[in-house]
Simulated assay, not measured.
Amino acid sequence: MAQAMMRLGVFLVILLMLVAAEAGTSHPKPKKVQCKNQDYPDCYCLELTCPSACPEQCEVDCVTCSPVCNCNKPGAVCQDPRFIGGDGITFYFHGKKDQDFCIVSDSNLHINAHFIGKRNQNMKRDFTWVQSLGILFGNHKLFIGAKTTSTWDDSNDRLSLSIDGEPINLPDSEGANWQSILSPGALSITRTKNTNSIEIEAEGNFKIKAVVVSITEKDSMIHKYGVTQEDCFAHLDLSFKFYALSGEVNGVLGQTYASNYVSRVKMGVVMPVLGGDKEFASSSIFASDCAVSRFSGEFVKNNPSDSFEYMNCASGTDGRGVVCKR
């Protein structure tokens, strides 16, 4: 009898451990999203489910009336880092770890990205990710960053925000909003989840969606990153939308919105890489001294002949094969 009771106790302990493990690995239900553009009545307010590739980070493309991962839309900068240009073409720009590169530079908008990473001993480059942004617009300096962390817990907010050197504090609650009246325009920051996900909009200038993510053990194993438990390389997945670019805009991403841009990306390869470390390198996160800088702090209105014509675009799950409609 005693042995039977002992075996039963062991069985119950194992069962409880399995239940706890299953609960710990359960995934939240995919997010529901809607088209908010009334110009598309057949799709407007229709509720759709985010794809399995991005269960919590998608939007509805009202043109095709389908959910699209934020990292697969034109203007996205995600992962290692993978860019999707304004022309819809996907490319990679690796840069170098612990250095800054201008990704957008125009007369009244300059965005630098600070790269973190690890040296790959088997390759001639670093593994890199975008850790923070330094944004210059008018006479203002906006900082968005992912704080260093060892063990990742998405319920622990790792966002760092400041404007003109003053920290911005947002409650850990979805929908929490911070606003500031600037000259010109206004700046608004809203949490799109309780933690680690925000939307930033500068009136008439830009909108940025930023999500802090980490390198998981699975990612590290697949890509041979060699990431350890001392640092999970928390970084930013980003989605940009621009309202007032000139035809002369430049930068790693910005150049793809220029009026005379011709892609330098070698098409047809699995991982098309864009070079140009030297021309895009900046001396610091808020420096506008990269070789292709266009920043003056004053808005230069587009000429009708050189303005960028915006397009509605949607893409497949891998960000390739983008379809655009003017």
Score class of each variant (00 low, 15 high):
residue 135 I to D: 02
residue 49 T to P: 05
residue 152 W to I: 04
residue 127 F to S: 05
residue 241 K to I: 03
residue 32 K to D: 11
residue 323 V to Q: 11
residue 70 N to M: 09
residue 20 A to E: 11
residue 224 K to W: 04
residue 320 R to G: 00
residue 47 E to Q: 15
residue 301 K to R: 11
residue 214 S to N: 14
residue 79 Q to S: 07
residue 81 P to N: 15
residue 36 K to W: 13
residue 313 C to I: 04
residue 176 A to D: 10
residue 323 V to L: 10
residue 22 E to G: 07
residue 208 I to G: 11
residue 44 Y to H: 06
residue 68 V to F: 03
residue 221 M to F: 11
residue 120 N to R: 14
residue 152 W to R: 03
residue 294 R to L: 14
residue 248 E to H: 10
residue 243 Y to E: 14
residue 86 G to D: 08
residue 1 M to N: 10
residue 317 T to N: 15
residue 253 L to S: 09
residue 225 Y to S: 07
residue 240 F to D: 00
residue 265 V to T: 08
residue 215 I to Q: 06
residue 8 L to T: 08
residue 136 L to C: 05
residue 88 G to I: 10
residue 198 I to P: 04
residue 276 G to V: 04
residue 28 P to I: 04
residue 16 L to E: 01
residue 207 K to P: 00
residue 96 K to G: 02
residue 325 K to Q: 11
residue 219 D to T: 07
residue 233 F to Y: 15
residue 56 E to D: 13
residue 211 V to H: 14
residue 313 C to F: 09
residue 76 A to T: 07
residue 65 C to Q: 14
residue 59 E to L: 06
residue 306 D to S: 14
residue 5 M to Q: 07
residue 145 G to E: 03
residue 282 S to Y: 02
residue 195 T to A: 14
residue 212 V to Y: 01
residue 226 G to Q: 05
residue 51 P to M: 13
residue 6 M to Q: 08
residue 15 L to S: 14
residue 310 Y to E: 13
residue 79 Q to Y: 11
residue 179 Q to V: 13
residue 247 G to C: 13
residue 215 I to D: 01
residue 214 S to L: 00
residue 93 F to D: 03
residue 282 S to P: 02
residue 184 P to W: 01
residue 111 I to E: 04
residue 123 M to P: 00
residue 286 F to E: 07
residue 81 P to D: 15
residue 40 Y to I: 01
residue 239 S to F: 02
residue 2 A to K: 12
residue 189 I to L: 07
residue 113 A to D: 09
residue 248 E to I: 01
residue 198 I to G: 08
residue 251 G to D: 09
residue 308 F to D: 01
residue 39 D to L: 13
residue 251 G to F: 01
residue 26 S to P: 00
residue 301 K to H: 13
residue 159 L to A: 05
residue 153 D to N: 15
residue 100 D to L: 00
residue 286 F to H: 11
residue 242 F to C: 08
residue 204 G to A: 12
residue 276 G to H: 06
residue 184 P to K: 01
residue 73 K to D: 00
residue 194 N to D: 15
residue 42 D to F: 15
residue 80 D to S: 11
residue 157 D to S: 14
